[in-house]
Structure formats: structure tokens, C-alpha cells
Amino acid sequence: MAILDVQHMEKHFGATRVLEDISFQMEQGEALAIIGSSGSGKTTLLRCLNFLETPDQGKIIVNGETLYDAGDPATQRESEVRKKRLHFGLVFQSFNLFPQYTALENVTLAPRLLAKERPDFKARKKEILEEIRSQGRSMLERMGLGDREGHYPHQLSGGQQQRVAIARALAMKPDILCFDEPTSALDPELTGEVLKVIRELAEQKTTMIIVTHEMAFAREVADQVIFMDQGVIAEQGPAHQVMDHPKEERTRRFLARYAEGMGEA
């Protein structure tokens, strides 16, 4: 069974149709790259999956459970949205770390708040919090930031901040981790360290959706690639096929433009 099944998703902003009939599936452990020019709807798609936007049409099914169905109001209750979000993690282009918390606190804040809802929280408070702390630490270590846990975001470089943000998303153990142009806000010399940890996550079979402009990286890391153009999926398939032998003229033109501007890609 597919871990994620998106069916006929549509999203409008006023009269503008941002997403149109988006359907795709993902398997557990797969990395999916979404490419396409700015304004093609990639970010909106991720935001819909994370319930930051509400799709006007379509369904989102995770592990067979229908999380969202535009035709069924029962799936749209505000009170349940919060729990549903936890199936997904989101790493933002602009990191969005909480400035008043240290790297470790950024990672552990949400798990601590969630743990308060556990029935055994009162009885085992100390134990649970210690567990969350040590998990947060090991998460930062995985990101190569073991020595930075006490640093505040403004004391970290952009690449380090983004790695903390990845650790923070991973700490919630999402089924599917989404990246929204994770290196677009970084200086070129800092993109490498972020791509490296995403590559490692892919090697560890983390289920991921990566919206990216790094074409070489997408080709290397992704199992599947979706090319979006003007709100629709213009082409999707195995990474090597879409990127090396695109069937669609639109895909070919897009990739050619990137190949020209190699410096950027």
C-alpha cells in the first residue's frame, strides 16, 4: 500500500487556480523530488499536505487513512487537523527556527508539549522529558550539530540553522518529511552541508518530498520526480527517466534552461 496517496487535489486563490488535478502516490522509504519553475504550485502543494492551506478539491490519504477529503466535512475538523499534521513534517525555505530557544530547545519544544497529553505524563514526567532531551540530542548529532545544542539560532550559520530545522522536523517522527526549497535561502557555500544531510536521510530510507531547484541533487537523491508547470503535474516518473529522458516538451525546455544556467543549478 502506498504511504501517501494524493487524489485530484485542486487549490484556488480567488480566481487563480494554483493546483489542478494533482494526483500521485508514494511508497514507504521513497524520496520524491518536485521540480518546476517558480509559481508552478510546488510550495502550495507542500502547504496543502501540511494543512497550512486547505485544498478546494481532492483527497489526501496516508497509510490508507483518509486525512482530508474536500467532499467530506468530517475530515476537516479544526480540532483534528493538529493530529493529522503530525503525519507530515515540513522544513521551510527560511528555516523559521524559534529565535528565543537554543538549538536543542527548538528540537524538543514540540515533543515536550505533545508529551503533556500522554496519560502517563504526570507519573513519569522526569523520565519522559529526559528521554525527549536525549532524543533531541541524538537528532542534532545526526545532523552534525552535537556541539551546537546550546547555541541560539542567531549564533548559527544559515546551513546550521537549516540542519537544526531538519532535526526539529524529524523529532516529531513524521511519516513523510517535506522540504520546501531547503537550500534556496542559503549562500552557495552553505548548500552542500544541508544537501549532505538530506542525502544521508535518503540513504536511510526516510520517506521524503523535496521541492528543489537543485537539479543535480534531485537526479541523484530522488527515486521519483514530479515536474510541475502552471499548477498541473506535467510529467512524473522515475528520476532518471524524467530528468534524463523527459517525454514532455515542457519538461525538456525547463531542464534545458537549467542546464544553461549551470551555475545556478
Binding site: 494543512f51 499534521r85 527560511s94 514540540a110 522536523a169
Partner: peptide, 17 residues
């Protein structure tokens, strides 16, 4: 920045949290 609120929501926090 609105991203602060979104980052919290995406991590499963309630609006009041």
C-alpha cells in the same frame, strides 16, 4: 514573521501553544 506561527502549527502545536 508568519513563518513562526506556521512552524509551530506544522509541529503539531495548538494555536494557544
Amino acid at each position: 514573521p508568519v513563518g513562526q506561527q506556521e512552524a509551530g502549527l506544522v509541529l503539531g502545536m495548538t494555536k494557544s501553544q
